[in-house]
C-alpha cells in the first residue's frame, strides 16, 4: 500500500560564504519566498528556510497539486518526498517506489543516439537494461522520431528531445509519481497524444504530487491541491477552492503593490 506521511518537516539550507559557495548565494538570491535567517550559534552561517513545519498525509489514489510562488517551497517539498533531501527536523514516512520527474534533460547525452539516450534515461529512472529493451519498441514508436533515433540527439530540435524524454519518462510504472512543472510540450499534434499518455500514466500511479504554475495542468491531473507560501502549507483542499485562494493572494499582492 502506498502512502506518504510527513509531520512537522522543516528544511533549511546552509548558505556558505560567497567566495567559496557562489552556488548557494545564487540560490539565496533566486528565492523570492524563503525565509532568510541567521545562525544564532554564532558560527556566522546563514540559513534559508525552505520548508517550515510541513505536515502532509497522502494515500493511495490521491492526486495533489502544489501551488504557490516561485520559492514557496514546492520543489523542495518534492525533493523531500523523493528522499533527496532528508529533513533536519520532522519525520518522513514513505511507502512505495518513488519516481521523480523533475528535469526533462536529466541524464541526456547530446552526443549519444536517441536509442542510447532512451537506455540512459531508463536506467536513471530505475529500470533495468532488460526492462528498457523490452519497452524500446513502444517508446520508439511513440516518439515518432523514426530514423532520427539512430542519430546523436544534438541534431534534434528542442521539441524532438522533449518527445524522447517524455516517452521514456512516462513508460515507467511508478507507485508514487512526483512531477515538477512542464512535463509534456511539443507541437499541437503531439500534445494531444501526450495528454492521453500522461493520463494513462497518471492512472497507473498510486499517488501523484504535481507542482505547477499552470492551473490548467492542476485541474487536469489533480483532485486536491495545497497552497504553499514561504515554506509552509497554508491550506489543503479541493482544486478549485485552492486555486481561488491562490488567485486571491496573487491579486491581493498586486493591489497592495
Amino acid at each position: 500500500m502506498v502512502s506518504i506521511e510527513l509531520s512537522n518537516v522543516s528544511v533549511a539550507f546552509p548558505v556558505f560564504s560567497a567566495t567559496h559557495r557562489s552556488l548557494k548565494m545564487s540560490l539565496l538570491g533566486g528565492r523570492t519566498g524563503g525565509t532568510v535567517g541567521t545562525d544564532a550559534t554564532g558560527a556566522g552561517g546563514t540559513v534559508v528556510r525552505a520548508l517550515d513545519q510541513v505536515s502532509l498525509r497522502l494515500q493511495h489514489g490521491d492526486r495533489l497539486g502544489l501551488v504557490g510562488h516561485n520559492g514557496a517551497g514546492k520543489t523542495t517539498l518534492l525533493r523531500v518526498l523523493a528522499r533527496i533531501y532528508e529533513p533536519a527536523v520532522g519525520s518522513v514516512q514513505i511507502q512505495g517506489d518513488v519516481a521523480p520527474l523533475f528535469d526533462v534533460n536529466l541524464g541526456m547525452d547530446m552526443d549519444a543516439t536517441g536509442y542510447d539516450n532512451i537506455l540512459f534515461r531508463g536506467l536513471f529512472l530505475g529500470l533495468t537494461k532488460r526492462q528498457v529493451e523490452a519497452r524500446m519498441q513502444e517508446i520508439a514508436e511513440f516518439t515518432e522520431l523514426g530514423q532520427f533515433l539512430d542519430m546523436p540527439i544534438r541534431t534534434y530540435s528542442n521539441g524532438m528531445r522533449l518527445r524522447l524524454a517524455f516517452a521514456v519518462s512516462t513508460s515507467i510504472d511508478p507507485e508514487i509519481l512526483l512531477l515538477d512543472e512542464g512535463i509534456g510540450a511539443g507541437d499541437a499534434a503531439f500534445l494531444v497524444k501526450a495528454k492521453t499518455r500522461l493520463r494513462a500514466f497518471a492512472e497507473r500511479a498510486g499517488i501523484i504530487v504535481l507542482a505547477s504554475h499552470s492551473s490548467y495542468l492542476i485541474r487536469e491531473m489533480c483532485d486536491q491541491a495545497a497552497l504553499m507560501e514561504q515554506g509552509r502549507i497554508l491550506a489543503v483542499g479541493g482544486v478549485e477552492e485552492i486555486l481561488e485562494q491562490y488567485q486571491a493572494r496573487v491579486d491581493g499582492q498586486l493591489v497592495g503593490a
Binding site: N8, A12, F13, P14, G37, T38, D39, A40, T41, A43, G45, V47, R49, E86, P87, A88, V89, G90, S91, V92
Partner: peptide, 22 residues
C-alpha cells in the same frame, strides 16, 4: 553540520530530539 541550520537554541534542542535518523 547540523549546528549551521539552527536558528535558535530551543529549536536546536528540538532538532536533536526529532532527528529522524538519530
Amino acid at each position: 553540520m547540523q549546528s549551521q541550520v539552527t536558528t535558535s537554541k530551543p529549536e536546536r534542542r528540538q532538532q536533536r530530539d526529532l532527528l529522524p535518523q538519530g
